[in-house]
Design a protein around this nucleic acid. Structure first.
Lengths: 188, 188
DNA sequence: AGTTTCAGCGTACACTTGTACGCACAACTG
DNA sequence: CAGTTGTGCGTACAAGTGTACGCTGAAACT
């Protein structure tokens, strides 16, 4: 799994990755691969699974901590972007597979994004209630936010360092814009 | 190009597509491929180029026509989704490549999305002026809209027919939400 | 102590891949 | 009519692919 993740991080797409290659990088014989996974598909699913739970837990924790103090939006965006930066290969893979054709990968990746969206929606509703500001279509707002953050985050990876700060600020504005829109729709 | 597009439409990802395979599907010998493209990369770029200009022109025309009568948002969303449906393979490829590692593909795909976003922003500003409603961060609003529409559109492809209508309505609400947010930010 | 399970290995096979080379024929161009 | 250019072909090769088969030795049970 480490070998595959490392190769993904260096830009390779998962389906150009061969069983033999992964085995060689992991320092085992090609045939020994089968002791661990039935397939390359098995490997891919295990990778998505692992990073998925990590990511979901991470965002959970961030929202709990951020409630006391700084802007939740800013903290969440920055944390997610940090994670994407630290796990470039996997993040790219998850988003790309969620856009692929019906397959085990696509289901796994989509499940993760849906979970993140559902969790975020739950938080948004709770937070809006607390502030007494009704939201319109909170689930759709969360959906949009997750989509925007992932696409922006991935795009950020190949952006020259000096422009990154500007892009992150732009992402924060985008999220705020969605929230404002949702609030406006909640009042109507 | 037709052979490759057909294969993409059936769910294959571009980089699992081999030169020999494309040649066979096109009914020519593998070596004849080189008479047309220097590379598989050449083929891919030509495909993106072709569909890119088609798509940009299509959206242009839709906005001109839609100005007289129906909701611009609704018409644009429906037209774009129709295009994505009619060109599943290419649409998927463009979006996936825009999320890949720095490469010729990624540049080409990104260029297309940026163009669409710029065009949309231009229209939004013009339309907002006309209605006397100032927009906040129109360029970011357009960015978000394009991202949302493409990701939603691709996701729609593998959605059972009976749920599609609901998803399309959801996409329209998402876009309206962004517009409302942009307007709210424009007033502040 | 005896047995089972686990994780590794080498060899082998049939298949696919990109591409170098040189030849053949059509369609234009002068 | 001679020549150039564009598009096609078959053959060949070295490299890489997934996986079947059966062997090993260590670790973990019973």
């Amino acid at each position: 799994m480490d070998a595959a993740a490392a190769e993904l991080a260096s830009g390779r797409s998962f389906d150009t990755l061969s069983l033999r290659e992964v085995a060689k990088l992991a320092g085992i014989a090609p045939t020994s691969f089968y002791r661990h996974f039935h397939d390359m598909e098995g490997l891919g699913l295990a990778l998505i699974e692992e990073h998925g739970t990590t990511l979901v837990n991470l965002m959970h924790r961030v929202r709990e901590q951020a409630a006391e103090g700084r802007s939740v939006i800013r903290t969440s965006v920055e944390t997610l972007f940090d994670y994407i930066f630290g796990n470039q290969g996997m993040s790219r893979m998850i988003l790309q597979e969620s856009l692929s054709r019906q397959s085990a990968f696509r289901s796994a990746a989509e499940k993760l994004l849906v979970t993140m969206s559902r969790d975020l929606a739950e938080f948004l509703v709770w937070d809006a209630d607390r502030r007494g500001v009704p939201l319109g279509h909170p689930r759709l707002a969360a959906d949009s936010t997750v989509a925007i953050l992932f696409t922006t985050g991935i795009a950020l990876l190949d952006t020259p360092a000096e422009e990154r700060e500007r892009y992150i600020e732009a992402a924060i504005i985008k999220v705020r814009m969605i929230m404002r829109g949702s609030e406006a729709m909640g009042q109507a």
